[in-house]
Design a protein around this nucleic acid. Structure first.
Lengths: 334, 334
DNA sequence: CTGTTAGCGCTTTCAG
DNA sequence: CTGAAAGCGCTAACAG
């Protein structure tokens, strides 16, 4: 069972490789229907599969877009990816995808790997939006997603982090919460965390960071969190205190720690979260949260990218910040 | 900013392309350290990126494994993928991945696409394990995952569906549940659903299917489910009734419908589920479930595949069924 | 309508 | 230690 090539097919049908090539590319006008049929049959019979590697090398255009995601295990990521695949499929592009596993070095490697594959364009959900690797990218054939650089050089699709959190936390405030806390994985330079926090500060008007709780994102952080929370609870015994968590995973840690302390929402504390995950609705009580349309973000990234790719007159445009709206999903958690 | 080739570099350094090629492949023994340095410098300066397409075409071995998953939005899938990526990275393989979006036709297309890419091997998480497309695959360079064919032709990595459910449901029975129901997406021919159901039947010894509730997996199925559940509850007013759900999504529907009926677990009904998702622990009460190691399944698939690929003497072995163990995670839901 | 042929960018003998 | 040259499988003029 040798691997067949276009040449084999050509010989078997007694035509030239050019004709077979034309057949493969649907240029049927360039051959008689007789040869067309013969070729068709032979391909059926032999189960010949053309090599897209050779095709790509010859055409120097693979119509593929490369994507690098920060962390495939994040539910946000899989939804985004799903959007990217859908949109690419519709537009006739295939996608080749890499996972950086939250490792910035891996991310650099991935991007280089994608470049080697000669992809038409790049979509990056960055681990570190400040990584120097992004300086090597051109805004003509790349777009970024979710996390953004301090100074945007590449079109970036983001959610409405600031306003969403501002509005949400304001709502909690209006509901009588007197002390609010923002709980997050280490903010470091990660734009989504930082900007959500800024939205929190805008709503609360806190002038210092004592209402920002940073917890570890790797290992079991429950004990760490427990002691922080118990202190907060003691200090605010007769006050209504509320928490806003940076994402679903953080929310889980928070609830676990609170439960370990014997505290229940919404009686003992109020709570809200960024991200709307399917299970948040069936929690008792249901979790109020900010819903972001991750699928749409993927689709938007693809559209933005492909628009640039097909833009003939490569008009060098300023890098855009494209924000995908969110909505509040109010349930019973505060 | 032209695209550089190996020829350009060769000319600039005044050596032949062969030497540059040797450099790229780390065959430093085949050149003086002088030329080695010159080449190194030039590549740095020019930011030359070799084309892996051309490389793959020339070597006819891309060291890549192709994967097709049934549905990327399923949390099971992303965890499996994560395992696949990890393992491949460690073993020096790159992965190219496609999503079938639960569409069997798409799956066929994906597999053909992967073949065209001349992948070294294939890992398939099938939409339809009975699809004729799998007849065209060889057990020398493919492995399947999760869902299995009636008659296995390709090595398949699965979880311990039958025993896990049998044991779990038996435990519920021992806890005094008098009527048990299995609730699932339409079983159709899907092995995971079928086998889990068989485990359920083994434990309960039911001889008919009136204890199997099939619900839609697409649209809102809550109303449908509500009327079924309310009938069951009425019929068993003074009995202890328990439910086992086929996966996390089904569980969510079940709980939603029950809540709409004003029923709470574990007082009004007992409940357990296949799949251990992070949020199940923080539900109140916590959800008891069967934990499957999805990451490990991905890793196992890769190892199995690569073992075959490097097996020199292509010993045509019988297709194996490799089962990855599960464990019970008992919490407070029954 | 069909065939010839020169690449695409890299690898790999084989000579020198 | 280095280079020349023949491929890998396909495409795309250009001729006929």
């Amino acid at each position: 069972m040798e691997k067949l090539t276009i040449k084999d097919i050509a010989q078997m049908v007694n035509v030239s490789t050019a004709t077979v090539s034309n057949y493969l590319n649907g240029n049927y006008s360039k051959m008689s229907s007789k040869t067309r049929n013969k070729i068709e049959q032979m391909i059926q019979e032999t189960n010949y599969i053309p090599s897209s590697i050779a095709h790509d090398l010859a055409t120097n255009d693979a119509k593929t877009i490369g994507v690098s995601v920060a962390d495939i295990t994040n539910p946000f990521t899989s939804t985004v990816l799903s959007g990217i695949y859908d949109a690419c499929g519709l537009l006739g592009y295939t996608v080749i995808f890499t996972n950086s596993n939250s490792d910035s070095a891996q991310e650099i490697e991935n991007i280089n790997k994608l470049k080697r594959q000669n992809v038409s364009g790049l979509i990056i959900d960055p681990v570190d939006a400040q990584s120097p690797i992004f300086k090597t990218l051109s805004n003509n054939d790349a777009v970024m997603l979710d996390r953004e650089a301090l100074s945007i050089q590449i079109d970036t699709v983001v959610t409405d982090n600031f306003n969403a959190v501002n509005k949400f936390v304001s709502t909690m405030l209006k509901n009588g919460y007197e002390e609010m806390y923002f709980i997050t994985w280490p903010i470091e330079q990660v734009s989504t965390r930082l900007i959500r926090y800024q939205g929190f500060l805008e709503a609360t008007q806190y002038k210092h960071d004592s209402h920002c709780i940073e917890i570890d994102n790797h290992k079991s952080n429950i004990d760490q969190l427990k002691s922080i929370l118990s202190k907060i609870i003691n200090e605010n015994e007769h006050k209504k205190v509320g928490f806003f968590s940076m994402n679903g995973k953080v929310l889980i840690s928070l609830i676990q720690a609170m439960r370990a302390l014997g505290k229940k929402y919404p009686d003992d504390y109020g709570i809200g979260s960024y991200e709307d995950l399917d299970w948040m609705e069936i929690m008792t009580p249901g979790i109020s949260c900010v819903h972001q349309d991750s699928f749409e973000m993927g689709v938007t990234a693809v559209k933005t990218l492909i628009n640039k790719l097909v833009d003939e007159n490569k008009t060098p445009k300023l890098p855009q910040r494209i924000v995908v709206p969110t909505r509040m999903e109010l349930r019973e958690s505060f």
